[in-house]
């Protein structure tokens, strides 16, 4: 069934609010009101870092008679909006004031087929380092990000998705659900 190596970044303390963006083009979804909860949450305060998953299945045979359907999805969706105000991979380049760090964030679409927003901004730096528990992005030091990993919500060091990742020995760079960023896990 594979490992679960997803990471989520903490943006609970991010105060940026974006208006509802994008238009609906209709997704092919059936919904079951299986939850007793009311409504759905916001951004949850975190970002994913993506990795494994999957399953094993010793299946053989069968004829497969189910008819197919068309999934309209969001085929004409607009591209994500990007608003990077500083370089999170280069924390000491002068983009932010002393004592601040450059933090990445994501704003999930508030409606089907809306636009995601990716960006970064300067904020007072936290102290959390690789592997430290965290509850939001600002708990982590500059160059780190608070992610839900499936093995604790923790600060992880940002890493590039291509080439040498620069992660500490034994750690692996996993994609975060913010465009262009990875975290060491």
């Amino acid at each position: 069934m594979g490992s679960k190596a997803y990471l989520i970044f903490g943006t609970a303390s991010v105060l940026l609010v974006f208006a509802s963006l994008g238009g609906g083009c209709g997704s092919n979804v059936s919904f079951t009101a299986a939850s007793s909860s009311t409504g759905q949450g916001g951004d949850g305060g975190f970002i994913f870092l993506q990795g494994g998953g999957g399953t094993t299945d010793p299946g053989v045979g069968g004829s497969g008679g189910l008819p197919g359907i068309d999934d309209p999805g969001c085929k004409d969706k607009p591209p994500p909006i990007e608003d990077f105000q500083c370089d999170a991979y280069n924390q000491n380049n002068g983009d932010c004031m002393p004592g601040e760090g450059c933090y990445i964030y994501v704003q999930y679409p508030s409606q089907p087929c809306g636009q995601e927003v990716y960006g970064s901004f300067c904020a007072p730096a936290g102290t959390g380092q690789q592997g430290d528990p965290c509850g939001g992005g600002f708990d982590c030091g500059a160059g780190n990000v608070c992610v839900v990993t499936g093995s604790g919500t923790q600060c992880v060091q940002l890493c590039p998705l291509f080439g040498d990742d620069g992660c500490p020995a034994g750690l692996v760079c996993e994609p975060i659900d913010v465009e262009g960023f990875g975290g060491c896990l």
Partner: peptide, 9 residues
Amino acid sequence: PDTRLTNAP
């Protein structure tokens, strides 16, 4: 169709 199983905060 894709069936959504959860609807929770």
